[in-house]
Computed example of a mutant assay.
Amino acid sequence: MDKIAVLVPCYNESKTVKKVVEDFRRVLPEAVVYVYDNNSTDGTAELAQEAGAVVRHEYQQGKGNVIRRMFREIDAEVYLMVDGDDTYPAEAAPEMVKKVVEQQSDMVVGDRLSSTYYTENKRPFHNFGNSFVKNCINRFFDTNIQDIMTGYRAFSYQFVKTFPVLSHGFEIETEMSIHAADKHMQVDHVIIEYRDRPEGSVSKLNTFSDGFKVLTRIMNLYKNYKPLGFFSLLSAILAVLGVAFLIPILTEYWQTGLVPRFPTLIVCGFVLIAALQSLFAGLVLQSMEQKNKQDFEMQLIAAHERYQELLKDGERGA
């Protein structure tokens, strides 16, 4: 088992990957730097290998697929995930690792938004999107994570081996943040100095399509992690619509004793039944989610036992 594993997912980062590998090897000489190439066509893998990284490949396109492969294949005491675009300073890595080792953090977030992100980043919609997503998640999940979509994070062994990677693309960071908040894992922050991509390096993010994917993922995760809140909201909306259309019918019936709009009355009845069903669905799914949380605690115990076994094996090997 590695002491520290630096995980660098890459897709066409030939302009920057060599510097990223060299920087992290310099500040974390005891770490193994893994570059996972995701079908690059510009020689990224070769440059990373020349710089001293262990190069592996993931052939399913998408950052989420790369992270899934990394987490599955690598055993380490501490994991440090960083993008290969040289926008994150390697100098912050020792402090992030220290929080995992000494303060038992499950996830350490490299916080860009509290420092230079809004001045360095030249894409205003990205600035708005990061703030919007942060506020949504902190409100929905009652947490206080300062940078939801940063690609610079440190993890414990227990987090990595119990995190179910479901996203395929750039929504993965959002999924990590929500998972940590929902499972009451210890999340700490290190403020980092973000810098924009160097000249010639091109972002793979599409502001609108990827932003839509992130928002869709937030709603899906809210439904899965907070089913009572989601279905109660849906039930309330249906109930309001049903009652709003039902009131004129009842008023007319009280005044005349007649119900001339039977189709509307029937639809209102079905809408109110759907509202009731939605509420009960939320109650049932909330009970199931509680059981999932109990099972997750047992998974954490099993992961911790496996972690201790790997440490003992390493000591015997040494």
Results as ranks from 00 to 15, higher is better:
residue 218 I to Q: 02
residue 218 I to N: 01
residue 219 M to D: 05
residue 219 M to H: 03
residue 220 N to L: 08
residue 221 L to P: 01
residue 222 Y to K: 03
residue 223 K to M: 07
residue 224 N to D: 15
residue 224 N to P: 09
residue 225 Y to I: 05
residue 225 Y to V: 06
residue 225 Y to E: 11
residue 226 K to D: 03
residue 229 G to R: 11
residue 230 F to D: 00
residue 230 F to G: 00
residue 230 F to P: 03
residue 231 F to Q: 03
residue 231 F to N: 07
residue 232 S to L: 06
residue 232 S to F: 05
residue 233 L to P: 06
residue 234 L to F: 09
residue 236 A to V: 03
residue 237 I to E: 10
residue 237 I to D: 09
residue 238 L to F: 09
residue 238 L to V: 12
residue 238 L to G: 06
residue 239 A to C: 14
residue 240 V to C: 06
residue 240 V to K: 07
residue 240 V to P: 04
residue 241 L to Q: 14
residue 241 L to S: 12
residue 243 V to A: 06
residue 245 F to Y: 10
residue 245 F to I: 08
residue 246 L to R: 05
residue 246 L to Q: 09
residue 248 P to L: 02
residue 248 P to C: 01
residue 248 P to G: 00
residue 248 P to T: 03
residue 249 I to F: 09
residue 249 I to W: 09
residue 250 L to C: 15
residue 252 E to D: 12
residue 252 E to H: 14
residue 253 Y to I: 04
residue 253 Y to L: 05
residue 253 Y to N: 04
residue 254 W to S: 04
residue 256 T to D: 09
residue 257 G to R: 01
residue 258 L to V: 10
residue 258 L to T: 13
residue 259 V to T: 11
residue 259 V to K: 02
residue 259 V to D: 06
residue 261 R to M: 11
residue 263 P to E: 03
residue 265 L to N: 09
residue 266 I to D: 11
residue 266 I to Q: 12
residue 266 I to F: 12
residue 267 V to E: 03
residue 267 V to K: 00
residue 268 C to G: 02
residue 269 G to M: 00
residue 269 G to F: 04
residue 269 G to T: 05
residue 269 G to P: 01
residue 269 G to Y: 01
residue 270 F to A: 07
residue 270 F to I: 09
residue 271 V to I: 10
residue 271 V to D: 00
residue 272 L to K: 00
residue 272 L to M: 03
residue 273 I to N: 12
residue 274 A to S: 11
residue 274 A to Y: 01
residue 274 A to N: 04
residue 275 A to R: 00
residue 276 L to C: 15
residue 276 L to D: 15
residue 277 Q to Y: 14
residue 277 Q to G: 15
residue 278 S to G: 14
residue 279 L to K: 10
residue 279 L to Y: 12
residue 279 L to R: 11
residue 280 F to M: 14
residue 280 F to G: 06
residue 281 A to H: 10
residue 281 A to I: 15
residue 281 A to F: 08
residue 281 A to E: 12
residue 284 V to D: 14
residue 286 Q to F: 03
residue 287 S to G: 15
residue 287 S to I: 14
residue 288 M to T: 11
residue 288 M to A: 13
residue 288 M to W: 13
residue 289 E to C: 02
residue 290 Q to H: 12
residue 290 Q to E: 13
residue 290 Q to M: 10
residue 290 Q to D: 14
residue 291 K to P: 06
residue 293 K to P: 02
residue 294 Q to G: 06
residue 294 Q to P: 03
residue 295 D to M: 07
residue 296 F to W: 05
residue 296 F to R: 01
residue 297 E to G: 14
residue 297 E to K: 11
residue 298 M to G: 06
residue 300 L to M: 04
